[in-house]
Design a protein around this nucleic acid. Structure first.
Length: 201
DNA sequence: AGCACGATTAACT
DNA sequence: GTTAATCGTGCTC
């Protein structure tokens, strides 16, 4: 039995748009304390890039909340919003430059029963089709904020899995930036796989 | 110290 | 289509 391959720090230490595109098809894996894996294939991401990006939390500069985004790539930036939801990002670019990729949707592949239970037995398609939903399904919360996703010991990490061709990928404006000024509100930094099931052989 | 609002979701009409 | 839920964060006083 070989150690499962994990995406290395070099993967994340690249331009954020490249990482956001290439994370489509990667598998996000959570290993729970009892050893159970819950995982899914990433099918939607968004890029948040630097202090100039008025949609990025780092627009406010370095604060206690955003400090992780200024740190080394390949770490988790997990934050709490709307008083009840956790959202999971991966830090990108070189240390010192604040940027991250928000993971917005997965196709569930492992630990299906646990996902269903944590998603209150809703239909399968509603388990991980939103950034807060996938955090609930995989039990990702603030305890992972700042966690290194690239070490062999990490209990939350990414694995290479599927390659989605460019024809299957669409882009568009990022979601939920209603009060953000242009051009940041409309810049197409959202990446989606159109019909992911057609490409899963 | 107070306040407005958010990288959302679920349950409405 | 609309709206309540619910609280940490960052900004203003």
């Amino acid at each position: 039995m070989t150690v499962p391959e994990r995406l290395p720090r070099d993967f994340f230490a690249r331009p954020t748009l490249t990482v956001a595109r290439e994370l489509l098809g990667a598998r996000l894996v959570r290993i729970e304390p009892d050893g159970q894996r819950t995982a899914g294939i990433i099918v939607e991401t968004e890029a948040y890039i630097g202090e100039e990006d008025q949609g990025c939390h780092a627009r406010a500069g370095r604060t206690p909340r955003t400090a992780v985004m200024y740190g080394p790539p390949g770490h988790a930036y997990v934050y709490f919003t709307y008083g009840m939801h956790w959202l999971f990002n991966v830090v990108t670019e070189q240390e010192g430059f604040p940027a991250a990729v928000l993971v917005r949707a997965l196709l569930p592949t492992e630990g299906l029963e646990r996902m269903a239970a944590r998603r209150r037995n809703r239909p399968r398609r509603e388990w991980t089709n939103g950034p807060a939903k996938l955090c609930q399904a995989l039990a990702i919360d603030g305890s992972f904020h700042g966690a290194d996703l690239c070490t062999p010991e990490a209990m939350l990490f990414l694995e290479p899995a599927v390659t989605f061709p460019d024809e299957s990928v669409t882009t568009g404006p990022r979601v939920g930036l209603n009060t953000v000024p242009e051009p940041w509100k409309s810049i197409p930094w959202r990446f989606m796989v159109r019909s992911p099931h057609l490409f899963l052989t």
